[in-house]
Computed example of a mutant assay.
Amino acid sequence: MVIAVASQKGGVGKTSSTISLAAGLARKGKRVLLIDIDSQANSSKVLLPNYPQIQKHQTVFTTILERNPLPRLPTSVPNLEIVPSHILLSTTDVELTTAIDHREERLKRELDMIKDEYDYVFIDCPPTLSWLTINAFTAAHKVIVVVSPGYFELDSIVQISKTIGEVCGWFNPLLELAGFLFTMSDPTVNSKTSLQLLRQTYTGSVLSTVIPRNTDLRDAHFQKRDIFSFNPKSPAALAYNKLIGELFLI
């Protein structure tokens, strides 16, 4: 199963969710690949302690821009491999916008060659609706849309929902919405109201599991560790374990 994890806004817990789902499944013995196509490369920086030494040809840049096979590297988590990102991906949209040769399929073509080696593949998308995101949606079976509390955060999912529908119509008719994942939840009125509004607006599409705001996630990533190795009993780790059970029945 190939799952794209997406949001239209940064800072909503998208990368934390991608890392936690991938690492959690890997620690349960599943073979997992994480593809980082966010030019900020935060997933890569957390899971690859030697990331500053990684060369451009060792990243997804070589696949998207130069059409080479996906370069896979082992991570600090057993059973989890990663295709790292690169800062130069930030310029990719300029080239893909003018390309005419199946620009939406560059990731899918190479991923199709190797995806059967894994139980799960996660794609950490950029926090924009770009050609990179369209590449991810074209390659994926399902999309998890990450949403945090706030009016503008909720407003942004209208456009991302439209993009999923357009990709279904043009490039990937089998693409499904896995659900909206509500993150950074806390006891404030803003958080409670945002979740209530999300569930009312997208009835049946909001995942039951809610991810709490938890400093352990930030601290774990600062130490280049996933939440399960950092503090497996933290509220965030327990929530992501519950999410894995909800999504994958594990």
Rank of each mutant, 00 (worst) to 15 (best):
V2Q: 01
A6I: 11
S7E: 09
Q8P: 03
V12G: 13
G13N: 10
G13R: 13
S16D: 04
T18S: 15
S20P: 10
A23V: 00
K28I: 02
I35P: 01
I37K: 03
D38T: 05
S39A: 10
Q40K: 03
K45W: 00
V46I: 14
L48H: 04
P52F: 10
P52H: 05
H57R: 12
L65Y: 03
E66R: 11
E66M: 06
P74E: 12
S76W: 02
V77G: 00
V77H: 03
P78Y: 11
E81Q: 12
I82W: 09
I82M: 10
S85M: 08
I87F: 07
T92Y: 04
E95H: 13
T97K: 06
T98D: 06
T98K: 15
A99G: 02
R103L: 06
E104M: 10
L107V: 00
R109S: 08
E110R: 07
D116C: 10
D116M: 13
D116T: 13
I123Y: 08
D124I: 08
T128H: 07
L129R: 00
I134G: 00
I134P: 02
N135G: 09
T138H: 03
A139V: 12
A140D: 02
K142D: 13
V147C: 04
Y151V: 13
E153H: 13
V158P: 00
K162E: 15
T163P: 02
C168D: 00
C168S: 09
P173Y: 07
L174Q: 12
E176P: 04
S185T: 08
D186W: 00
T188A: 01
S194M: 03
Q196N: 07
Q196K: 14
L197S: 11
R199Q: 15
T201Q: 14
Y202T: 12
S205L: 14
P212T: 04
D216E: 11
L217S: 07
R218L: 06
A220G: 06
F222T: 15
Q223L: 13
I227R: 05
P235R: 03
L238P: 05
L238D: 10
K242L: 08
G245S: 07
E246R: 09
L249Y: 13
